[in-house]
Design a protein around this nucleic acid. Structure first.
Lengths: 118, 118
DNA sequence: AGCTATAGGGATAATTTTAGCCCTATGCTA
DNA sequence: TAGCATAGGGCTAAAATTATCCCTATAGCT
């Protein structure tokens, strides 16, 4: 995440938003958090196919871009809560439009010639 | 593109649209084609940082998902033209919303705490 | 003859992303 | 005491994506 060999050029808006939400689990995380699931352990249970590690990484990236906010409670066992910032909330309609289009695509077989889902 | 070790699960719409437009150059290609640039050589000139190979690969994927259509003219030297299908056109507003959000993000510095663009 | 341009695609290397381990610490409960 | 849950993060391996090279073929131009 720090020393890339090939620099990213976030030249256009498209590249920028892809950088922000393009991770494998990021849209899921944003969606989950927007629905009130705040704690890492909850998010992990909601995405059992992802490892804790990756979720943590992608949460950190989202936090870095100002999409979510993190509150650490100084208790034991540790407690952490994430929530969407206003910037993060402004992303919700975008994600919704994307998801809607994708859902339409999925529901409409015959449109996708070589869909080898596996 | 054929034998992946880890199967993709295109379970939700979000995963589906990411699979379709998630490639590094795909949004650019769709955008370019929507603006009337049809031939591979044109697209290549418009995206000089991408290699011919990658553009060709991503065009093939877009074609496979029914986003663009390819017409091969049986002439020499070879001539090929791509165009958006109606499905591809239905994607334009989605891409536009995404690009708009990203552009807003770029234009609004201070929103992004740890943006290490490099 | 040697150069250009055109488009396709094989083979492999480089790079980035994701997965899968490990270990830290503490308080609770069986 | 042993096991569980909680959250963070180092380290390495696996997998996926992109980049970079190679070659095919033909027509036109100098």
């Amino acid at each position: 995440m720090s020393d890339r060999k090939i620099p990213k050029d976030l030249d256009c808006g498209m590249a920028m938003i892809m950088e922000i939400i393009g991770g494998k689990w990021k849209p899921c995380l944003i969606h989950n958090i927007s629905r009130g699931y705040k704690r890492p352990s909850e998010l992990q249970r909601l995405n059992p196919k992802a490892t804790r590690r990756v979720l943590y990484q992608q949460l950190t990236e989202l936090e870095g871009y100002g999409i979510i906010e993190k509150v650490i409670f100084p208790v034991l066992p540790p407690k952490v809560e994430y929530s969407l910032t206003s910037l993060g909330m402004s992303l919700l309609p975008v994600i919704r439009v994307m998801d809607d289009w994708g859902t339409q695509y999925l529901e409409n077989p015959g449109q996708h010639p070589t869909l080898k889902t596996a």
